[in-house]
């Protein structure tokens, strides 16, 4: 299911980029196309920051998400001001947008971590129990 969702998102992104690429050739950059391209750009910047953050900082999960919340909100705000999305009156909306995305990401991440730990521990236990079985049946055969 996860793979299908992942492929769907990638395919949707490719379709958007392909359609917009054709539209740019035919009719130039419209406001909608610019908005989507800027969102792609913002997503790239956040993805790079997230990668670097995970690579260089080891923090408890909750703290790391809180730090990311403020860092990413700052990036979105800065980007929003440059792109003209935010004004001094509505810049606080960045906190809401980033908050929603990060709460979802945190929930998915927490579930995934728990599931991965269970999977690894189950396999270690399985390996250990099969090792014990081998030991019991280890009656030296005559050579």
């Amino acid at each position: 299911m996860r793979k299908i969702l992942q492929d769907t998102c990638i395919l949707a992104a490719l379709m958007i980029l392909a359609v917009f690429a054709c539209s740019i050739i035919w009719s130039g950059i419209t406001a909608e196309i610019l908005l989507v391209l800027l969102l792609f750009g913002l997503a790239l910047i956040i993805a790079v920051c997230n990668y670097l953050f995970d690579e260089y900082f080891t923090m408890p999960m909750v703290i790391s998400y809180i730090v990311k919340y403020f860092v990413f909100s700052g990036i979105v705000m800065l980007f929003g001001f440059i792109a003209g999305w935010f004004f001094p009156s509505n810049f606080w909306m960045a906190f809401i947008y980033v908050g929603i995305v990060l709460v979802l990401a945190f929930a998915i991440d927490a579930l995934k971590v728990r599931r991965d730990i269970r999977y690894i521990n189950e396999h270690i236990n399985k390996k250990e129990s099969s090792g014990k079985l081998t030991k019991i049946s280890d009656n030296p055969e005559t050579e």
């Binding site: 995970d54 999960m61 971590v113 991965d116 730990i117 690894i120 270690i124 390996k127």
Partner: peptide, 15 residues
């Protein structure tokens, strides 16, 4: 040992 969450998937692949 402290494990980084980022590498948990790599550990999973070993099993």
């Amino acid at each position: 040992l402290i494990v980084s969450r980022k590498y948990l998937r790599d550990i999973k692949k070993c099993f």
